[in-house]
């Protein structure tokens, strides 16, 4: 079926030698011009695609509220606004972490993301364990790995107490490559 396709096209005349230098020159100029133009358009496009990488978005300090919000000796989930939120984020801008007020000013703040594959871990007061709903990972109250497939303990956020408020350093999804 493809054999007689060439018949429908007018035969191509072989170019005379005298034309070729001018045509070759135009071909080369055209190619170079397009390469430059392509670069001028392409570079910003690549820059746009990589913009989230270029813009630095490190974890930042923010407050989780007064220390008195956290009962001594208890583990509590704290909800905070993503420091890098946009209006369109809706309720996904409400992020969470687990706060353990061990005693007095002694705190430990954990990310809710399981260190295995990132599912949300939940605290069980009675058994004093974090359980992961996905593949049965378990962590002790100090965040250490207790059972199941997670390769390490929970991710721990840095924290400090400023003017009676508990501040943590977060805002980046913790993964094994970036364990906050």
């Amino acid at each position: 079926m493809a054999t007689n396709e060439s018949e429908s096209h007018p035969p191509v005349h072989p170019e005379k030698k005298s034309y070729s230098t001018r045509r070759d020159f135009l071909l080369q100029v055209g190619a170079v011009l397009n390469a430059i133009a392509g670069f001028m358009i392409g570079l910003p496009l690549v820059g746009f695609i990589l913009s989230s990488l270029i813009k630095s978005t490190p974890p930042v300090w923010f407050s989780l509220g007064p220390v008195s919000n956290f009962q001594e000796g208890a583990m509590r989930m704290a909800v905070y606004e993503n420091p890098y939120r946009r209006e369109a984020d809706g309720q996904t801008a409400r992020l969470t972490c687990w706060v353990h007020r061990i005693s007095g000013d002694q705190f430990k703040v954990f990310a809710a993301n399981c260190t295995h594959l990132g599912c949300p871990v939940r605290w069980f007061e009675e058994s004093q364990l974090f359980l992961c709903p996905c593949h049965g990972g378990a962590f002790y109250a100090d965040g250490e790995h207790a059972a199941g497939p997670p390769p390490r303990g929970l991710y721990v956020y840095e924290h400090k107490i400023v003017n009676g408020e508990l501040q943590v350093k977060a805002g980046v999804l913790p993964t094994l490559a970036f364990p906050v």
């Binding site: 695609i49 990589l50 989230s52 990488l53 978005t57 993503n82 890098y84 939120r85 946009r86 369109a88 984020d89 809706g90 996904t92 801008a93 992020l95 805002g171 980046v172 999804l173 993964t175 490559a177 970036f178």
Partner: peptide, 13 residues
């Protein structure tokens, strides 16, 4: 991870 999420965290982007 950053490229996948379009930023530091899961959101509108």
């Amino acid at each position: 991870v950053n490229l996948l999420l379009g930023g530091p965290i899961i959101g509108s982007d």
